[in-house]
Design a protein around this nucleic acid. Structure first.
Length: 271
DNA sequence: AGTGCGGCCTGTCCGC
DNA sequence: TGCGGACAGGCCGCAC
């Protein structure tokens, strides 16, 4: 499931093949994603040149002179670059074909992803305008997090997964970051000290950077944008390891649910 | 305003 | 072997 590191990896994987290229045509086979793909997307993109591709949170922004294509990979979405003909399979919903013959193919079994179009500045789009800071930028720091946590009764795990607080921290990385910072995920956000918040910020940045470096944590749904099998070996310390021994103290990890999400942590190490 | 949760989907795994 | 149900998950949007 693409989290921020996977989206970043996808961006890096597809950019060299797409930026500066002119679009020959777009085929939409299944328009029913999280929201319907605009019915005229093919007409909008035909003959457009992809000037640049950027990432904001988990959204990919394809800029053209006509407007911006906003893509979200949802839970199971994947973008691949095809340099030769490959027959479509069941969940291949969109092809964007370039004049040079290269195809960017979107595959998404669960169809939680999105293809949207805007002629305005993409960051002013309703889905993007209220987003919190990027986790890797300097303004995301202990002071900021501590201020935002004031009077917040929700658990710190749910808090850091709120995209209005900080973007790109999904369930896996929230659990891993809290373990790294030695903070119990059940603690109310407002109970965190400034020092806790500073440690947590450092841990979030550390965990995300490590994952980006490894090319993203790769679960079964993800393939690299070049189509190669991408089982990267990022070792998760708590996520999915309920009842297994803590890597630090060897006590059994606790697994519970927080905000309808499975949460694993060490009751001994995380205070 | 802050919080909690339903819904969107399909593949996989479990128990009967 | 087949089948129903639980579960996984990002994130919007609604209800309290």
């Amino acid at each position: 499931m693409p989290e921020l590191p996977e989206v970043q990896t996808t961006l890096a994987g597809i950019s060299p093949y797409l930026v500066g290229q002119k679009i020959k045509g777009v085929t939409v086979r299944v328009p029913k994603l999280r929201w319907p793909i605009p019915h005229n997307l093919a007409a909008l993109l035909k003959d457009a040149t992809i000037a640049s591709i950027a990432r904001r949170a988990k959204y990919l922004l394809f800029s053209t002179q006509k407007g911006t294509l906003i893509v979200h990979l949802g839970m199971s979405g994947r973008l691949q670059i095809l340099k030769a003909f490959v027959p479509t399979e069941k969940h291949d919903h969109v092809d964007i074909t370039l004049k040079n013959g290269t195809v960017m193919r979107y595959t998404d079994p669960r169809r939680f992803g999105a293809f949207l179009w805007t002629v305005n500045h993409p960051l002013s789009h309703p889905l993007l305008k209220a987003l919190g800071p990027e986790p890797l930028q300097k303004s995301f720091n202990g002071q900021y997090l501590w201020q935002r946590a004031t009077s917040k009764k929700i658990s710190v795990k749910v808090f850091i997964m709120d995209s209005k607080v900080v973007v790109g921290v999904g369930n896996i990385y929230a659990a891993e970051s809290l373990f790294d910072a030695k903070i119990n995920p059940n603690r109310p956000a407002q109970s965190l000290s400034l020092d806790d918040c500073a440690r947590l910020c450092v841990s979030i940045k550390k965990v995300l950077r490590a994952a980006i470096k490894k090319g993203g944590t790769t679960l079964k749904d993800f393939l690299g944008s070049d189509g190669s099998k991408g089982y990267f070996s990022l070792k998760l310390k708590v996520y999915g390891r309920g009842n297994l021994p803590c890597v630090t103290c060897f006590e059994a990890l606790t697994e519970s649910r927080l905000g309808q999400r499975s949460t694993a942590y060490c009751q001994h190490c995380q205070v």
